[in-house]
Design a protein around this nucleic acid. Structure first.
Length: 883
RNA sequence: GGUCGGUUAGCUCAGCUGGCAGAGCGCCACGUUGACAUCGUGGAGGUCGUUGGUUCGAGCCCAAUAUCGACCACCA
């Protein structure tokens, strides 16, 4: 007996130790080996100051499964890890921290603030890395990168300058989404629209010539302070006479023109729209068309500015309230109606977005989007599941320019300088002290930083050393698959694709595997505010990383949200325990000095061939599943094989040989036990890396770690169809016998002579060969095989099988009422089956058109069921007679 | 308004190219044989949301419909 395992599976005993062992041995670090194929995955960089949540656990588990599989399958597998500086959220946290200390970012100044931010980063920066390690991720930590690393910053700067030089980055005064809380512009992708129940106010503007008035409708009355016109549709008969006239803006008393523009929809509201070019994207365009100019009425914090007259200083919502009151007081307000519309919110802080005209930097998207779309349309870029391709394409087809400047300090500062003397804009790789145009030294760098996603868009190549030509970039790029949540397709996936095409000339990855959300057991999104988040680390602590990993990849399909149930983790922990104990059994029953590395096919017995043949199929299926990203199916396949075939049947079948006298048979069983177990461990390793590696080191003849062992291959020598059929027949027979005994309440300990009656030579042979199994697994005391039942007495339990009948002469235990009941049930079942089969076969269409194989199978079923039914009827008849 | 998902056992979900409906949990009965009670054996439980269609054959394909959900969207 070999070194034993502890009696129960306790993952805490070895998980951390094994992780260190893998890492210390450099197993996570691939080499550049041109004789081997690379396989690369870029880890979506978590926020540097973030902490591990179920979403991370899910997609990192998936990535780890793929990486471990490919590594074993002979690839140089690089999994590139790192973290993201997450400008807006990190900055918000540092600002909040400062506020709690009674300080503000402004009074601290840029330099000091950045010091604070770096302190914060260093304080929390290692946390998520250590949490990921707990999960067992086999990424190459020696290559860890951070988006603010010097190298990556260089890449950011390089891309900015290249795009600027190509005219793809420009500065413009345009309507942007402004977050009054974060006090920065954000991109369209960062705005979340949410339906809200609001109001629409109908307001009367008097005409200057006192000939009447015009009524407009608005959902944001406070913006009237910035009105520069009223627009109507040129085809609107109601207003034809008013076009060109002047209206007086209520409360403000500004004179504004009534203009005609196609943009106005006659059916909506009153058919007349107030135009506020500085605070609404549509109005902005109308304003441009009609040369209305601009009037900004709001400060960056959402309060009304000095252009708002008496309303100056009020928050936008206070101003709204006050303005409505004043309108009402002065009889300008005609009506208020309930009105639902979608309001934009800041993705980070949920504050309502204020559309605001502002001078910002933009990336011109159309030329970049086009090839990104083509890559998808040509099929170079694939999505799993496919439906996400449409979402990707739809976004690209409707893309708008990307606002990339942020009024934040934490991030990549724009490499842009302004000459205050001559107004020149200088974009430069190096610090600029003097204007190259007017030679003035009155030059200052732009204070803005870039959108975080601008740097993460470069992640697939910046982490490999770009813009330098590095061997890593040459070997590992492009990557193979991206695994990420569907919620960041717009933020990240799309931007990586076009950035990569633009800078590298090719797509950054071929496949995009999208995961769904992990929700709580009630189907709610896990969130901090709800307090319903489940901490992966707590789960790992209690059940082990393997159980958590297995839970996350089974029981759902890619791209679908999943509910997280602790019961499922428990079930998977139990599975690990099952494997653990199966291994203990094997270890208790093998010999130390035996060589287990080869098995001799000639010496294999029936059940050996059966399990090896089954294993062979599992190897094929799991490999296929992994290749198609069907991780859940693959995991399930191994689970079933381990539990239902290896543990429930093979181990049970082989026990008698292990305890028996036949030395050679025993050795063969021992070798097969170990052989199959080793293969199981390999197949399961990507899913449950810890337990498999731990067990592996207890098995004999293992010279290297499981993590770098070879992935099993399908082997044609292991196709044993005959043995498979035979063992499956035996299994079915054992189940039927057990069933009959259980229904008759006969304890398994009560052994019975078991008499088989069959004329079929194949069946006879199977039974003869399977005697042992009936004795051990079907409570048989002895086995007898007869050609017919004449030699058998009357007082039996009978079990009808395919081409065979089994009799258990347990006279004193038989309750004939029950036996009849049981057989009646059997009869009904068979009659139902026969009805179905006969129906099918009497359909000429089926017989003529279905594949011959299918028809033949049905015929065979008909024969089988009818034969079995006859036996049941016979049996019932004789029972009723003797009653 | 547009697009896309889900609807299968009591619960949560699988179900690959159309060919006898599956798993885990839960439930019922029995079980301490030296791997495992984190277990074993047996069992109950489903008109695959509804209606049509295609097909020899539909959980799967098509069309409607109901319902829940997600995403996109500048109707003031």
């Amino acid at each position: 007996m070999l070194e034993n395992l502890p009696k129960t599976y306790n993952p805490k005993d070895f998980e951390d130790r094994l992780y260190k062992y893998w890492e210390d041995n450099g197993y996570f670090s691939p080499k550049i080996d041109k004789t081997k194929k690379p396989f690369t995955i870029m880890m979506p960089p978590p926020n540097v100051t973030g902490s591990l949540h179920m979403g991370h656990a899910l997609n990192n588990t998936i990535q780890d499964i793929l990486i471990r599989w490919k590594r074993m399958d002979g690839y140089e597998a690089l999994w590139q890890p790192g973290t993201d500086h997450a400008s807006i959220s990190t900055e918000a946290r540092v600002v909040a921290k400062l506020r709690s200390e009674g300080k503000s970012k402004e009074e601290l100044g840029r330099e000091k603030f950045l010091e604070e931010a770096w302190d914060w980063t260093h304080l929390y920066g290692g946390r998520i890395k250590n949490q990921l390690k707990k999960l067992g991720v086999s990424c190459d930590w020696s290559r860890e990168r951070f988006t603010l690393d010097e190298q990556l910053s260089k890449a950011v700067e390089e891309v900015f300058i290249r795009l600027y030089d190509k005219g793809l980055i420009y500065r413009g005064n345009r309507i942007v989404n402004w977050c009054p809380s974060c006090k920065t512009a954000i991109s369209d992708a960062e705005v979340e629209h949410e339906d809200s129940h609001g109001h629409i106010w109908q307001i009367r503007y008097t005409l200057k010539d006192s000939t009447g008035f015009i009524e407009i409708a608005t959902t944001r009355p406070e913006t009237m302070l910035g009105d520069l016109a009223i627009a109507v549709n040129p085809n609107d008969e109601r207003y034809k006479g008013l076009i060109g006239k002047t209206a007086i803006l209520p409360l403000v008393n500004r004179e504004i023109p009534i203009i005609a523009d196609e943009y106005v929809e006659m059916e909506f509201g009153t058919g007349a729209v107030k135009i506020t070019p500085s605070h609404d994207p549509n109005d902005f365009e109308v304003g441009e068309r009609h040369g209305l100019g601009q009037l900004i009425i709001m400060n960056e914090d959402g309060t009304i500015n000095s252009n708002g007259g008496v309303y100056e200083g009020l928050d936008r919502y206070e101003a709204r309230k006050k303005i409505v009151e004043d309108l009402e007081k002065n009889n300008y307000l005609v009506a208020v109606k309930d009105h639902d519309n979608a309001v934009g919110h800041c993705e980070r802080c949920k504050t309502t977005i204020e559309p605001l005209i502002s001078k910002q930097w933009f990336v011109k998207m159309e030329p970049l989007a086009k090839p990104a779309l083509e890559a998808y349309e040509k099929g170079e870029l694939k999505f799993i599941p496919e439906r996400f391709g449409k979402i990707y394409a739809h976004w690209l087809e409707n893309i708008k320019d990307w606002c990339i400047s942020r009024q934040l300090w934490w991030g990549h500062r724009l490499p842009v300088y302004y000459c205050d003397t001559c107004g020149e804009i200088i974009v430069s790789r190096t610090k600029v002290d003097k204007c190259h145009k007017c030679n003035s030294s009155n030059v200052r760098q732009d204070t803005d930083t870039l959108d975080t996603w601008f740097s993460s868009a470069l992640w697939p190549f910046s982490t490999l050393g770009w813009p330098d030509k590095t061997p890593e970039l040459d070997y590992f790029f492009p990557t193979d698959v991206l695994v990420t949540g569907y919620d960041i397709i717009f933020f990240w996936v799309i931007r990586m694709v076009f950035s990569s095409i633009e800078q590298m000339g090719e797509i950054p990855f071929k496949d995009v595997f999208l995961t769904g959300l992990v929700r709580d057991s009630q189907g709610r999104k896990m969130s901090k505010s709800l307090g319903n988040g489940i901490d992966p680390l707590e789960i790992i602590e209690e059940y082990g990383a393997d159980a958590l990993r297995f839970t996350l990849v089974t029981g759902n399909s890619p791209g679908n949200d999943m509910r997280f149930y602790i019961e499922r983790v428990e079930a998977n922990r139990n599975f690990a325990n099952k494997l653990w104990n199966a291994t203990r059994f094997v270890l208790m029953n093998i010999e130390e000095d035996l060589i287990y590395d080869s098995i001799d096919i000639d010496k294999l017995e029936q059940e050996d061939k059966w399990i090896i043949s089954k294993l062979n199929k599992v190897i094929k299926d799991v490999s296929d599943n992994l290749g198609k990203y069907e991780l859940g199916l693959g995991a399930q396949r191994i689970y079933d094989f381990i539990w239902d075939e290896y543990c429930d049947w093979y181990i049970e079948m082989v026990k008698s040989r292990l305890y028996g006298e036949n030395k050679e048979s025993k050795i063969t069983a021992q070798k097969v036990l170990v052989f199959v177990l080793k293969n199981i461990l390999k197949l399961l390793h990507p899913f449950m890396p810890y337990i498999t590696e731990e067990i592996w080191h207890h098995l004999p003849n293992n010279d290297k770690a499981l993590i770098v062992s070879e992935w099993p291959k399908y082997n044609h020598e292991f196709e044993f169809e005959g043995a498979e059929l035979a063992v499956e027949y035996i299994k079915a027979a054992i189940k039927s016998i057990r069933n009959a005994r259980a229904e008759m309440n006969i304890a398994p300990s009560k052994k019975a002579n078991t008499i088989f009656v069959t004329e079929d030579d194949t069946i006879k042979e199977i039974i003869e060969n399977g005697k042992r199994h009936f004795m051990n697994l079907a409570s048989a005391e002895s086995i007898t095989v007869f050609d017919n039942k004449e030699e058998i007495g009357e007082d039996n339990i009978s079990v009808v099988l395919d081409r065979c009948e089994v009799f258990l002469p347990l006279k004193e235990l038989i309750d004939y009422e029950k036996e009849i009941e049981r057989l009646e049930k059997e009869k009904e079942k068979l009659e139902g089956e026969i009805k179905r089969v006969v129906g099918k076969l009497s359909n000429q269409g089926f017989v003529n058109k279905a594949p011959a194989k299918v028809v033949e199978e049905e015929r065979e079923k008909q024969r089988k069921y009818e034969e079995m039914l006859n036996k049941v009827l016979e049996r019932l008849e004789s029972l009723n007679k003797s009653k």
